[in-house]
Every structure is written in C-alpha cells, then in structure tokens.
Simulated assay, not measured.
Amino acid sequence: MMPGVKAGFSLDARLEGDSNQLMWLGLCELRIMKDRRWPWLVLVPQRPGIEEVHDLTPLDQAMLTFETNMVAQALKNVTACTKINTGALGNIVRQLHVHVVARSVGDPGWPGPVWGHGMREPYQGAELRQFAEKIKAAL
C-alpha cells in the first residue's frame, strides 16, 4: 500500500489515467490533470465508497474544505489567474473528487467551462515537473 492510501481505498481508473499524482495531503491525494491548457488540480479524499461530500463524516467534510481552500490559494498564488473554478460534479466519475482550476481571461474556452472543451493538450518536457514543484512550494 502506498503512503497515505487508506485501507480499502482504490483510485478510479479514469482519474488515474487522466491525472498524475502530486502529493498527499491530510485527507486527500492531490493530482494534476494531464491538460496543460489550464492549471488544473484534483483532490481525491482517501475514503472508500464515497461519492458525495455529504457521504463524508463531518470531520472529513471540514478537512476537505480546508484542503480545497489551501490548494485553491496556492494555485491562485502560483498562476496569478483571474478566477479559481472549484467543482465536484461526479457525473462521469462517481468517486468523490474536487477539481480546482485556474482560469484567466483569454484562456481556451473562457469564460465557459473547461469540461468538454476541445482536445486535451498534454504537458511537454519538464513543464509538468516545473508546475508540480511550484505548487508544492506554494503549499
């Protein structure tokens, strides 16, 4: 079992394929979406069988809010973006996960949603590592 993984927890295969692990927080695994068009992070609470925020215990709900806010502030500081979009939709991937996306005027799709907009653009070369290092430093 990897450090930080709770007994009985497994990451949804689509989340694993669409993102890279960045680090472990208190409740969540923090991941980077594999799409360079937007600085896009995903928090995944390490609790088995959880689909909705209200499925979490009150303490875990508070921890998820704290970690989401911490990640959003770090992303805003690193990117100097116009707006942070935060969402936990779960229509396609049912496992609870929270998207935190940095948006700026003029980015692909602005001001519309990032979901379903165009084709994903993978990170090039050291770009992912550099972004990851900046986020870690900001946290």
Results as ranks from 00 to 15, higher is better:
residue 109 G to M: 02
residue 101 V to N: 07
residue 96 L to E: 07
residue 128 L to H: 09
residue 61 Q to N: 06
residue 106 G to H: 13
residue 92 I to R: 13
residue 135 I to K: 09
residue 83 K to D: 04
residue 85 N to V: 06
residue 52 E to A: 13
residue 94 R to D: 01
residue 136 K to A: 03
residue 108 P to L: 07
residue 63 M to D: 11
residue 21 Q to E: 04
residue 115 W to Y: 15
residue 2 M to D: 15
residue 106 G to L: 03
residue 77 N to D: 11
residue 13 A to P: 15
residue 110 W to I: 10
residue 43 L to R: 01
residue 20 N to G: 05
residue 94 R to F: 03
residue 72 A to T: 11
residue 41 L to K: 07
residue 34 K to R: 14
residue 58 P to H: 13
residue 41 L to N: 07
residue 87 G to L: 01
residue 74 A to W: 07
residue 62 A to E: 12
residue 30 L to E: 00
residue 96 L to Q: 08
residue 116 G to F: 08
residue 7 A to I: 05
residue 23 M to N: 04
residue 29 E to K: 03
residue 108 P to V: 10
residue 70 M to D: 07
residue 90 G to Y: 06
residue 64 L to G: 13
residue 123 Y to C: 02
residue 53 V to I: 15
residue 52 E to Y: 14
residue 35 D to G: 04
residue 3 P to M: 06
residue 92 I to G: 05
residue 137 A to H: 12
residue 31 R to M: 03
residue 74 A to V: 09
residue 138 A to C: 07
residue 38 W to D: 02
residue 137 A to Q: 15
residue 138 A to H: 08
residue 26 G to K: 14
residue 123 Y to S: 05
residue 67 E to S: 09
residue 69 N to M: 01
residue 20 N to Y: 06
residue 60 D to F: 01
residue 61 Q to E: 09
residue 136 K to H: 06
residue 95 Q to L: 06
residue 52 E to T: 10
residue 21 Q to I: 02
residue 108 P to D: 04
residue 64 L to I: 09
residue 66 F to V: 07
residue 93 V to Y: 02
residue 95 Q to D: 08
residue 7 A to C: 00
residue 55 D to N: 15
residue 82 T to W: 00
residue 130 Q to N: 11
residue 44 V to I: 15
residue 82 T to Y: 00
residue 21 Q to R: 07
residue 119 M to G: 00
residue 24 W to H: 10
residue 56 L to W: 11
residue 84 I to E: 03
residue 61 Q to H: 08
residue 66 F to Y: 15
residue 23 M to R: 12
residue 18 D to R: 08
residue 87 G to N: 00
residue 31 R to G: 02
residue 65 T to N: 13
residue 83 K to I: 02
residue 76 K to E: 12
residue 117 H to L: 10
residue 85 N to D: 00
residue 60 D to T: 06
residue 124 Q to T: 11
residue 69 N to H: 03
residue 41 L to T: 13
residue 81 C to W: 08
residue 89 L to M: 15
residue 68 T to N: 08
residue 108 P to I: 02
residue 83 K to L: 03
